[in-house]
Each structure stands twice: as structure tokens, then as C-alpha cells.
């Protein structure tokens, strides 16, 4: 069942164009020129219960604006959004009980209070029963190690400790749907892994739908079942990691050492990138898109004594995808 359904979601911001210089500033003051900027443009996708979806894109692509519309903070200019059957911006109170959210390094906890007091205040806001609250806090403590620092005031916590508290805060009322906008930004690898484990637990064991934005490709690799790519406010890919690789990651290289050293090497469908004696590097040409297919073509023609395959890592794939989108837009 779909937990989130977004259809043709569009958000246009209207701002005043500031002209440069002193005279320009005065002109802007006297005769302001309003400009419209479309941050999200006709985005449609859905997220199932118990699914983790990575919403990815370069900086300024429209990810955070999309999340703010899905959480009900921003009102869409057009299109529709339903989160657990609720239109978030129309029924913010009911929506708030269904969702949890962490927005990067922005904390929702009170700076001067110990973490445990902050969580207790959120318990009161969400009306969580005392016994339920104790049970959940204990579970979060097991997964995130909160008790090591929950009596410390928020202002004295490290970034990693604070974000772990924020994750607990976002889930204290047991929401079905969780929005995480770059939750692990700036964290060390140990804490990142702990947070990833926590998220995996929430999706697999608790069946929560999670929408995650991140620039950390290791995180995407380890967590995401499905990826939605946005650039310039438009969605241009919605599929699995494997589909993403096959569409944008075909810049692999196959390095082979041939049993003999022919003067010329050619394989239909492949490009020869380097040829140095028996050592040859092939890349994708026209027709061959997978390394598996390339190997078959090479072995059919030549006897080989050694081979290595270099596939692009996910960052390269994402770069390809973003650039591809830029070219399409241009």
C-alpha cells in the first residue's frame, strides 16, 4: 500500500530581484521587480509502506522543497500530495501524528535542556502514554546508545550525539512515515554506521516508510531500495540502484592481458581505450552496455591470460546522471 503519493507537485517561489550596486538597490526599493522561480516542477512519485526511498539530486535541485511539501510545511503551488491518506498542508495536526522528520543539522530539541527532558516534552506534545514512552526510549537507547549522553544539555552534545537524539525525537510518537533530510551530514563514520543500522531497523522491523535525502553515496548504496533523482526541480529517474547503474553507469573499463600480442585489436561493439603490447583496455562502444556482454565478446575473439574489471562507483554514476540531466535540460 502506498504511504506517500505525490502527483504533479509544483512549487513556485516569488522573490524580489535585487539589482546590483547602490543605484540598483534604490531602484529595487522604489520599483521592485518580482520574479518567479519554480523550485519543484511537476514531480510525481509514490512510496510504499516499509520502503526506503532515496530522494537524490545536486544542491538546489528541489529535494528539500519537495520534502517540505510532503511534510506539510510548504503549500504546493499546484499538484496534489497525500501522506497516509492526508493532505499534509490542509491537516497539519493530524499529519504531524503520522510523520516524523529530521532536517539535517537543524535540531528540534531545546538548547538549554538535557536531551531526556527535551524528549519528555515531545512525549507531552504528542500525547505518548508513559509506558509506551519508556519502552520506545529503551529501544532507541539500545540502537543509538542515547543513555551515554541523554542527561547532558543539548548545547553540550557533539553533532553525532545531537542527531541521534533528533532521530529519537522524530520517532518518539511511532510515526508510520519518516522524512530525513541529510541526517548524517558532518558525522564520523562510526556514528554514520550506527544511524544507518537504526534506519534499516526502522524500515525492516517496524515497517516504516522512509524518505531520505543525502549526498553520501555509501548511505545510498547500503540503504536505498529505490532512488528518485531530481534536478532543476524535475524528476528524471525513478528506479532501483541496479537500474540506475545500467542507465548511467556504463562507463566501465575491462583490462585484459592477451595470451599473444597482436598488432591490432578490435572487438565489435567495444572501444579500445589503450593498447600496449598484450595489455588492452576496452570500454563500452556501440551496442555493448554491460561488462558481462563485453567479456563474452572479448573471449570469443581472443585468448586471455588475465583480466580486471573497473566499474564506476556510485558517485561516478550519480555524476553521469546529473550531467546527463543537465545536457537534456540545456
Amino acid at each position: 500500500m502506498d504511504a506517500i503519493i505525490a502527483r504533479d507537485l509544483t512549487k513556485t517561489f516569488h522573490t524580489i530581484a535585487r539589482r546590483p550596486g547602490f543605484v540598483g538597490g534604490l531602484k529595487s526599493l522604489v520599483a521592485p521587480a518580482r520574479i518567479a522561480k519554480t523550485a519543484v516542477d511537476g514531480v510525481s512519485f509514490s512510496v510504499r509502506e516499509g520502503e526506503l526511498l532515496a530522494l537524490l539530486g545536486p544542491n538546489g535541485a528541489g529535494k528539500s522543497t519537495t520534502i517540505k511539501m510532503l511534510t506539510g510545511i510548504l503549500v504546493p503551488t499546484s499538484g496534489s500530495v497525500h501522506v497516509a491518506g492526508i493532505e499534509p498542508h490542509r491537516d497539519r495536526e493530524r499529519n504531524a501524528r503520522t510523520i516524523g522528520a529530521v532536517f539535517g543539522q537543524r535540531t528540534q530539541l531545546w538548547w538549554d535542556l538535557p536531551a531526556r527532558d527535551s524528549l519528555a516534552i515531545l512525549r507531552d506534545i504528542f500525547g505518548v502514554e508513559a509506558e509506551e514512552y519508556r519502552r520506545r526510549l529503551s529501544e532507541f537507547d539500545d540502537l543509538l546508545g542515547l543513555s551515554e549522553f541523554w542527561d547532558t544539555r543539548i548545547r553540550h552534545l557533539s553533532l553525532g550525539q545531537r542527531v541521534r537524539c533528533d532521530l529519537a525525537a522524530a520517532l518518539i510518537h511511532d510515526p508510520k512515515i519518516v522524512f530525513l533530510d541529510e541526517p548524517t551530514i558532518g558525522m564520523d563514520v562510526v556514528v554514520k554506521e550506527q544511524v544507518r543500522e537504526f534506519l534499516r531497523h526502522q524500515v525492516e522491523r517496524r515497517g516504516r516508510a522512509v524518505v531520505l535525502t543525502t549526498h553520501d553515496m555509501t548511505e545510498v548504496n547500503r540503504l536505498a531500495e529505490r532512488i528518485v533523482l531530481i534536478n532543476h526541480g524535475r524528476l528524471f529517474f525513478d528506479g532501483s540502484l541496479t537500474e540506475l547503474r545500467s542507465r548511467f553507469g556504463a562507463t566501465w573499463q575491462v583490462h585484459v592481458t592477451l595470451a599473444d600480442a597482436p598488432a591490432e585489436v578490435a572487438v565489435p561493439g567495444l572501444r579500445v581505450l589503450r593498447h600496449d603490447g598484450p595489455r588492452v583496455a576496452f570500454g563500452p562502444g556501440e551496442g555493448a552496455t554491460t561488462t558481462h556482454e563485453a567479456l563474452r565478446l572479448i573471449i570469443e575473439r581472443y585468448a586471455i591470460s588475465d583480466l580486471t574489471i573497473e566499474e564506476n562507483d556510485l558517485e561516478d554514476v550519480m555524476r553521469e546522471a546529473y550531467l546527463h540531466r543537465e545536457q537534456v535540460t540545456a
Binding site: 517540505k68 511534510t71 506539510g72 504531524a96 501524528r97 510523520i99 537543524r106 528540534q108 506534545i125
Partner: peptide
């Protein structure tokens, strides 16, 4: 200015 006002809109208290 810090953006934490976001959280005021995702709680069941207006």
C-alpha cells in the same frame, strides 16, 4: 533564521 521553525509545523500543536 536557523530554520528550526520547520519543526513548529510538524507537531500536533499549532
Amino acid at each position: 533564521q536557523e530554520g528550526t521553525v520547520l519543526y513548529w509545523f510538524v507537531r500536533p500543536i499549532p
